[in-house]
Simulated assay, not measured.
Amino acid sequence: MSQLSLVFKGMAMGMAEVVPGVSGGTIAFITGIYERLIFAIKSIDLDLLRLIGKGKIGEAWKKLDGNFLVTLLTGMVLGIGIGVFAITWLLEHEPIAIWAFFFGLIIASVWVVGKDIEVWNFKTIIALILGTILVYYVTIAVPSSGIEALWFVFVCGAVAISALLLPGLSGSFILLLLGMYTYILPKVKEVMSGNFEGLSVLVVFGLGCITGVLSFSRVLTWAFKHHKNVTLAFLTGLMIGSLNKVWPWQEVLTTRINTKGEETVAFSKSVLPSTFSGLQDNFLYGNDPQTVLAIICIIGGFALVILMSIFGKKS
């Protein structure tokens, strides 16, 4: 695998983690680097620390698959940087188009991940249904307003980064459900722009991410080793249930004022384009359904994931 190709895959994963649609884990899965990534993360343990302590840096680097991780993480940082600025602008100025694109990404991801379920039986069907119901219920029951206390920021980091390892669940989507997406993402943007007022929040969030990724990688490897089909079915269900959250046509029910004094969406519900066109004073979204543009964006998102899946298999 060429280093440049791996950088581009990392960029795709980083951009995916910024948007509440498709997960970095899904990108890793469909581009053929998922298993290698999981084992590399899982290798961070006491044995690795002992090797470093004994000065056996070469052995530790090999155990960690260091070249792979550094190259991939470099691409992810670049992808996150691009995504933070581009996606935040699109969410503010072209919400229907960007959510339609996310919708297409998830539909394709459902197919890409679901087709790897080798056996369909009672357990896998139940797992699929439970995953779907769980996330769908959360999307309609939990308003998008979070808690800005540092302890909750830490918890969100641990949970969201865990989703990075799942081929099907977006870390940004988890932040969205927890009501922290519109709080954490602007902090990243501010720090990258030279404003370090929110740095403490990002440090705590980062510590949560480290805790989550080291612990959850072990849970995930166990689940895939012993219950692969059931795990994939559950993850597929999670994606199906999440479609409600990224439906392009939303009726904004309530808004809130964020920490910068700006009005943002607090809670919305999915409606049909015909209903959307009749809405009055629909904050942020307006009432122009832009149906043709939305369909094009859905097809574009779908095609992108399918192409990445094909490319991943060939490479």
Rank of each mutant, 00 (worst) to 15 (best):
S145H: 07
G146P: 07
I147M: 13
E148V: 12
L150Q: 08
L150D: 00
L150I: 08
W151Q: 14
W151I: 13
F152A: 11
F152N: 02
F154D: 01
F154G: 00
F154I: 08
F154S: 02
V155P: 01
V155R: 08
V155Y: 09
A158N: 06
V159P: 01
V159E: 05
V159S: 04
V159M: 07
V159C: 09
A160S: 14
I161L: 15
I161F: 07
S162I: 06
S162V: 05
L165Y: 04
L166T: 02
L166D: 03
P167T: 10
G168D: 03
S170K: 07
G171W: 06
F173H: 03
L175A: 03
L175H: 02
L176I: 10
L178S: 08
M180S: 08
M180W: 03
Y181C: 04
T182C: 01
T182N: 07
I184K: 03
I184H: 05
P186T: 10
P186L: 14
P186R: 12
P186M: 13
K187T: 06
V188F: 15
E190V: 02
V191K: 05
V191L: 12
S193L: 14
N195G: 02
N195V: 06
F196L: 13
G198I: 04
G198D: 11
L199N: 06
L199M: 14
S200R: 09
S200K: 10
V204I: 15
F205R: 04
G206Q: 11
G206Y: 10
G206M: 13
L207P: 01
L207T: 02
G208L: 11
G208F: 05
I210H: 04
I210D: 05
I210Y: 03
G212H: 02
V213R: 09
S215W: 09
F216A: 09
L220C: 09
T221E: 15
A223H: 03
F224W: 11
K225M: 03
K225P: 00
H226P: 00
H227K: 14
H227Y: 15
N229P: 00
V230C: 11
V230N: 09
L232T: 08
A233D: 06
A233C: 05
F234H: 03
F234E: 07
T236D: 00
T236W: 00
L238M: 15
M239A: 12
I240T: 05
I240G: 03
I240F: 11
I240L: 15
N244T: 11
N244M: 12
K245P: 00
K245Q: 15
V246M: 10
W247E: 13
W247P: 03
W247N: 13
W247Y: 12
W249L: 10
W249E: 14
Q250F: 05
V252L: 09
L253I: 15
L253G: 07
I257K: 02
N258Y: 11
T259W: 04
T259N: 09
K260Y: 13
G261H: 09
